[in-house]
């Protein structure tokens, strides 16, 4: 360290040197402190996330242990190449004599694209509904009226309830003799009919997660100064115009971050469909999401399950990437700006 200070370029004026060196030294001291402070977190995350992810990728290229079709002996897999991925993406299975065939209907492999479309369907519907409702909640909470504190408290209740309990609660509400059918005066089989079970999951998810959406959007709304609206009003903007041309552009960053978080969260949905519709619904896979398929596969073969979980991870990663690229979401910067605004 001191060596680099000594061989400073000769053109540098002498009187400036101590100041610069002091700043550099302070910065270097800070950087050293920062490393000491951050390393434990990074190491711990590497252990609890990095290690499993890397080993899942390695496992996904191994064959599942099983009976060798030729000898009838139990063998440990060996290298599989992209076989496990082909199993999911192209529905290729091995038949008894070790040839590649397309998977029979009952096989988990044949459920892959169904699970993908169910997952994306849930994500699209819940995120759109929750964004719209969340925006409405946020607008109401941003107004001044008596009882606003009550609304703000009530909105936290669904958020505080564990998803597993939420699932059980809506399982009861949606039971055949339950209150949903009683109120609607219907006899819908909410947890076993194909489309009804999907909507049961969507309704329960909307109830549970809209508050979170509303709070994020509200945080964005509160940053907008009142004068902006006053100015728009003076200029004769209608409330519709004020919403589209003033509010929406101003909350856009906060809104995009909220939607991004929700999309990533919805793509890994597990608890609700797993408990509310016992992982199936309909003929058995109407609400089977990618996460549920992974869990179903675990006990049938780790390596195949690893390939599927890696695919799931890549799908989520790609969606996040597209989101950030196309919509220009800068999560970190938006969050910082919001905090500065809230100060």
């Amino acid at each position: 360290m001191s060596a680099s200070n000594v061989v400073a370029p000769p053109t540098t004026p002498t009187r400036k040197r101590p100041v610069r060196a002091g700043i550099r030294k302070a910065r270097r001291g800070q950087a050293r402190w920062a490393i000491y402070l951050i390393v434990p977190s990074i190491v711990l995350l590497a252990v609890v996330i990095g290690y499993p992810v890397v080993s899942a990728i390695i496992m996904s290229f191994q064959k599942d242990a099983g009976l060798d079709p030729a000898t009838g002996l139990f063998v440990q897999g060996g290298f599989a190449g992209f076989e496990n991925y082909a199993h999911w993406l192209l529905q290729q299975c091995m038949n008894a004599s070790g040839q590649t065939i397309s998977c029979p209907p009952g096989n988990l492999g044949s459920q892959f694209w169904n699970a993908v479309s169910v997952t994306f369907f849930f994500t699209a519907v819940t995120v759109v509904v929750e964004t719209a409702l969340g925006m409405w909640f946020a607008f109401i909470m941003n107004r001044t009226f008596r009882g606003r504190a009550l609304v703000r408290a009530a909105i936290l209740v669904p958020w505080a309830i564990p998803t597993a309990v939420t699932a059980k609660l809506w399982f009861f509400i949606f039971s055949v003799a339950g209150v949903a059918n009683a109120v609607l005066n219907t006899h819908i089989l909410w947890v076993s009919d194909e489309w009804a079970s999907r909507f049961a999951v969507i309704i329960a998810d909307t109830w549970k997660t809209t508050p979170f959406m509303a709070l994020l959007i509200l945080a964005g709304l509160q940053v907008i100064p009142e004068e902006v609206y006053e100015a728009a009003k003076v200029d004769g903007a209608t409330s519709w115009q004020r919403f589209w041309q003033v509010t929406l552009p101003l909350i856009r960053p906060a809104l995009l971050v909220a939607v991004l978080f929700r999309v990533l969260d919805a793509l890994r949905i597990y608890d609700l469909p797993a408990i509310l519709t016992h992982g199936g619904g309909g003929t058995g896979n109407a609400t089977t999401t990618l996460s549920i398929l992974v869990v179903d596969q675990i006990r049938q073969g780790f390596n195949s399950a690893s390939a599927l979980s890696t695919i799931t991870f890549i799908i989520i990663f790609i969606v996040a990437f597209i989101f950030v690229r196309i919509l220009g979401t800068n999560v970190v910067r938006t969050q910082e700006a919001q905090q500065k605004g809230a100060k």
Binding site: M59, L267, S306, S309, F313
Partner: peptide, 20 residues
């Protein structure tokens, strides 16, 4: 960014290797 990405990480991606 790493830490934020980690918090968005899907649980299913961890479960298989941890199970084994």
């Amino acid at each position: 960014g790493l830490i934020l990405g980690a918090s968005m990480f899907p649980g299913v991606a961890l479960i298989t290797p941890l199970f084994q």
